[in-house]
Amino acid sequence: MTKLDIESHARESRTPSSREATRAAQGPIGTFAGRIVREANLLIIPMILLIVALSFFSDAFFTGHNLTNILRTAAIFVILGVGQTFVITSKNIDLSIGSMMALVLCVTASLIIVQDWSPHLAVPFAIAMGAVLGVLNGMVVTKLKVPALLATLGGLIAYRGAVQEFMYGGQYVGLPEQILILGRGMWGPVPVPVAIAGFCVALGWLLFRYTRFGRYTVAIGSNEEAARRAGINVDRWTIGVFAFQGAMVGVAALVLMGRMNAANPNMGQLNELHVIAGVVLGGTLLFGGIGTILGTVLGLLFIGVLENGLLLAGAGFYWQQIFLGLLIILAVASQMLRIKLQGRH
């Protein structure tokens, strides 16, 4: 015991800066704000520049109504992005989320409208159904050994086909009040979808940093073989990651349903790419091992602001698509550059 104390003292005196080093590793300021800056430092500056530029060029931008609108729109993407952050950190990807969301949404809406289910039952059902579909994705990836990119590309097509078949060209309109609140309501000054997204972000952030789930997600994405040798059940945790993404899809489906007051089989198209762009832009490494929930929030808000700016500038939906495509390429290119500059990861 004494020997140990002496040694640790000796060590301390040999490296007097060890404490400072620890603090430095924890961020410029050990505060919440410091953490945000560290987790998404690359994006904060362009984000601020973009907002400043938009407030200059458009009177409509910096209004409460417009900003709330941006947040409402971004909320659904953020909910999806929390799950996708885990998926991408584990060196996987989930392209099926847009189609999956439409499927969950339409099935849940039909249960409410046709089968007369109570919304209180429909909410847990939607989340559970998303999780089950996520498990399905995870099983294909881990048990059938299909790379996630292709497995979930199959899911993207198959789930979309399933929902089209299920709806048979029709749509449901007119959902009960309890569902509409999820997409349109206000909770004090905060729009309910924004509050739900905030809850999902907090949950994801805590899971990512402070639990085995987050730790093993990183380990699997960073060095799967090392994780396996450390006794981590890689398949089980990978399925868990896809299930979590699925559950988030369920939540997003409920919010979207409430927002649209409708269930249409064409909903959610291209949402997966929007979400992946935001996640990668936020700093989550497309090659696994590094993930940041707060970065994802920033990345998706950035895209939201940008799209809003394009809209205010009079550019249409097609321009938004062009920008989204360029953003994905830009985000990945910047990550490649970062890896090259840092050397081996």
Binding site: V218, A219, G231
Partner: peptide, 24 residues
């Protein structure tokens, strides 16, 4: 200790020492 060390680069030293056996 295998030749390739089997460490997780993106996890800190403490986390690597406890990988798969983390205390709760």
């Amino acid at each position: 200790v295998y030749q390739d060390l089997a460490l997780v680069a993106h996890v800190d030293v403490g986390g690597n020492l406890y990988l798969g056996r983390e205390p709760t």
